[in-house]
Design a protein around this nucleic acid. Structure first.
Ligand code: FES
Ligand code: FES
Lengths: 162, 162
DNA sequence: ACCAATTAGAACCGGTTCGGTTCCATTTCA
DNA sequence: TGAAATGGAACCGAACCGGTTCTAATTGGT
């Protein structure tokens, strides 16, 4: 049903958290805690995002991750592509996949591309900055979401360490 | 990676085939053959589409399926929703799913909705008629596509029974 | 009346994917 | 040198999903 992989889901949440304090580097552990994503998953995801150069990492004690660019210049599409590979609805459209040999014949092809492009554009138009922008006007909301590993669903996280 | 389920993929192909001759009812068997989708899958899909009232079915000998409305009035979004349920990227947004209890708090929520809406709109703006519109100008293209069950990939289908 | 064609609907099955974890190596700072 | 981090890979189990099969109900033709 056109679903987003959990990886991307969590990834967006984590990035959103980072977008609240650009420049500042946070270790995976606190990102995990404050975003209610399991530490293991968090690690995996941050590593991927760093490899994709959406994050810069600093190793060693007092290390951590920080956004590689300003939140306004990072799009949801980029995050998804970093974590789940290129955005392509059908296997036919996936770049290197052996997938489809008869593109030249298939009458549906360019139409698929139209749909694909539409979705890609939609995702590319939402920036991290927009996602981070709090919805409620009475102060910054606590950073907790169901976009969280099933386990970590204890309200303790609500304490808001930020 | 934001992928479309095979069910919807095939479904769109089948619907596209039907859109070439609206009004006319075709039995599942010939739809399967001409669209290069396995007969079993075809049956399953058509039943779902009929139940969703996108198709009208006629039982018994000389039965078959026909579009319930004009191709211009059927959107890709409808087809996908008929086959794979409501279009919702994250589990939080899925209607009845127990999913998320803290929507009121989650700062990301309305932002997710924005993304979701964007995609939905993109899909709702492409009609079957547009999909059916052949791309090449030299005559109607043969109806074969990789949007087909792995098995049925024999070029025999190219014979074009239409 | 009967048979063949066809849809309706459900149950079932095997495989792939993916969410999630764990382990070890490497880097950095105190 | 040791604690705190990230880097990277391998691994596992389970849910999902593509795909099949079987039986019942309906309809038209002979
Ligand atoms: S937690 Fe449900 S919308 Fe974010
Ligand atoms: S067959 Fe590959 S695009 Fe349709």
């Amino acid at each position: 049903m056109i679903r987003l992989s959990r990886l991307s889901d969590y990834g967006i949440v984590l990035m959103t958290r980072l977008a609240r304090e650009p420049e500042r580097a946070l270790p995976a552990s606190v990102l995990a805690r404050e975003s209610a994503v399991s530490p293991a998953m968090t690690g995996k995801i941050l590593k991927l995002l760093a490899r994709a150069e959406l994050l810069v990492s600093h190793r060693g004690a007092h290390g951590g991750y920080a956004l590689a660019r300003a939140p306004e210049r990072i799009t949801i599409a980029e995050i998804i592509e970093a974590l789940d590979g290129p955005i392509a609805l059908t296997s036919c459209l996936r770049p290197s996949a052996e997938g489809c040999g008869i593109e030249a014949l298939c009458p549906a092809r360019t139409n698929w591309q139209r749909i694909n492009r539409a979705i890609r554009d939609a995702l590319a138009e939402v920036t991290l900055a927009e996602m981070a922008r709090p919805v409620l006007e009475f102060g910054p909301a606590p950073f907790v979401s169901e976009h969280a590993s099933p386990a970590v669903r204890d309200p303790a996280a609500l304490a808001g360490t930020s």
